[in-house]
Amino acid sequence: MTLTLTNIAKTFPGGTQALLPTDLEIARGEIVSLLGPSGCGKSTLLRIVAGLEAPDPGAQIRFDGEDVTRQPVEQRRIGMVFQSYALFPNMSVRGNIGYGLKMQKLTKAEVDVRVEEVIALCRLEPYAERPITALSGGQRQRVALARAIAPRPRVLLLDEPLSALDAALRGELRDELAMLLRRFGTTAIFVTHDQNEAMAIADRVAVMNQGQVVQIGTPEALYRKPATGFVARFVGDAMRLQGRVEADQLHLDGGSLPLVGAAEGHATYARAEDIRLNAEGPVAARVETVTFLGTHYRIALSGAAPGPLFALHSGLSAPQPGETVRLSIAPEAILILPEDEVV
């Protein structure tokens, strides 16, 4: 199903603008992630698509061309995975998964067949008869997904579906979720504040900040060509290189770096993986802390630029805290972006 959002905005009763007018088009079968910090309006946008929240007047939501803006949630035929899962504690796993099908007035036999299918797809066979309270977090997450997908919704909406899990499980389920979503082939919107989740799961990522979509594109495009400093910081943790730009040179406290092309009036950023320790490097810095992370060291540096600066260093040994080291950054790895209006 194609999803077309036109002029979606939301002002809360107190006058707070949770969402500025937003347009978005999502193609059939596409998985789009809404990525942003908490309070950026991503959940509000999702809840408006679901029908759980009413947009300000003038908005239009189309499912395959059909205007559903005024339809209540129960008539929109959406599937939703809630942050808290919202599984019904009074029903078993099977009861939860079959509930949406029962609402569609399918016969008992039809419901049973479809529930079986989804249970198999989500590998929930051993738990089918269990009460919800007897499931682990990861199992609950799968049941929530199975319940949302069972009635074959027109669009699947996922509101931070992994955030209730602990870190280890989150990584594992992220990959599984990505695989299942591809297998369903349903158009999906996925809200998260975690860039890794968004990049692992989505075809396209819409980065949101302060109630609006700042940039939308594939994960690669966002990473390589961020449109603003905010996107660069949020996707791939780019660090600001605070210095003086003069023609194609960036003058930092610890030395000067060459840039690709002129960048006057712009802000410059670099990512930790692009900052190299290099005895011949043009910039001097002092090592503050060294953290060993297995495959590499993460080194906190000071003196090169005013803000915090980190470098990833792979190798068999690392410099000691207090040492002075020299750095280099490839000119093409330095992101040249417009100054943020508000930092």
Partner: peptide
């Protein structure tokens, strides 16, 4: 949340 869950399933 529970009610929103049920509503999203068509109740």
């Amino acid at each position: 949340s529970l009610e929103e869950g049920a509503a999203s399933l068509g109740a």
